[in-house]
Amino acid sequence: MAERTPERLVRLLGLVAFLDRHPGVPVEEVAAQFGVSPVQVLRDVDTLWMSGTPGYFPDDLIDFDADSLESGVLRLTQSRGMARALRLGTREAVALVAALRALDASIGDALDPAEREVLRSTLEVLTTATGEAAATVEVQLSVEGDPAVLAAARTALREGRRLHLRYVDAADRTTERDVDPWQLVTGDERSYLSAWCHASGGERLFRLDRILAAQVLDDAVTTSPAPDVQVTYRPAREHPTVRLSLDGRARWAAEQVPTESVVEDDEGFTMELRVATSAWLRALVLRLAPFLRDVEPPAAAADAGAAAARALAAYRELGVDASA
């Protein structure tokens, strides 16, 4: 895919400013610094070499030492007044500052003092440089787990040690297992621990607020995350498909669950989704009950209705008036 114009322009300007500060840097190091391939860096150099002030005679152009380049080293000999590092734009500053603030607020307490200091000092440097505009965005990360669980997960991650978990799943089943922790996935809705589960021999996402207890073991981890480690929950292909027809007031539902398809009609919409557990489906049907027009398979509606009726009976047994 062709690179977008703003990205390339910012890097071209960045290369000149960087090389003005660091005379004589190998192409590979420059590439790593800017997160692009060495081939791309050389292409950028070709462009810079042709660029400069109007007239575009040799003395007007940005220039590099040709001998150094022969041996794979970039040495800037003429910056044409472009040695300054470019400031951040408003949106750019907002994107980084809001992210750092959210991290600090949600997980700062679970970091060790040195890590927290790095986070705080970075935030300070950026806010000093960018000013108040960066306060226009605020993100609340939802890290709702037990603080002791969070602390244990952080320790295990930092020290590369195995964790023993007591975990309750969506079907309300409690299990115990050893895992290699990979990442703490902190989200705006929920947070997860991504890990290799030794009990099931697979990659798993554990909801932080469903980890009942976590104990750091002496054993070192033996697995490491795949490059495309799963960080959001996605139902698998083999899970059965369910179709829910809802009226328009439940449109938020299609924004909150991972759907396969959403089709609009006159009275509302129909969404298809894959369902990993029947307990999860029951919870969803219970939540959407007032808006449901149809469910396929119909047994899902009957199951939720029967469970609700049992609950109402239990309330009556307590002497609670359960009627409307």
Binding site: V10, F18, E92, L141, G187, D188
Partner: peptide, 25 residues
């Protein structure tokens, strides 16, 4: 893009995932 700009004034980290965190919004 902000990161590209800041790369000019920074030292490249050796390890990408320093904190074992993956925030997602």
């Amino acid at each position: 893009r902000a990161l590209t700009k800041l790369a000019v004034v920074g030292v490249r980290p050796a390890e990408p995932d320093v904190l074992g965190l993956a925030p997602r919004v």
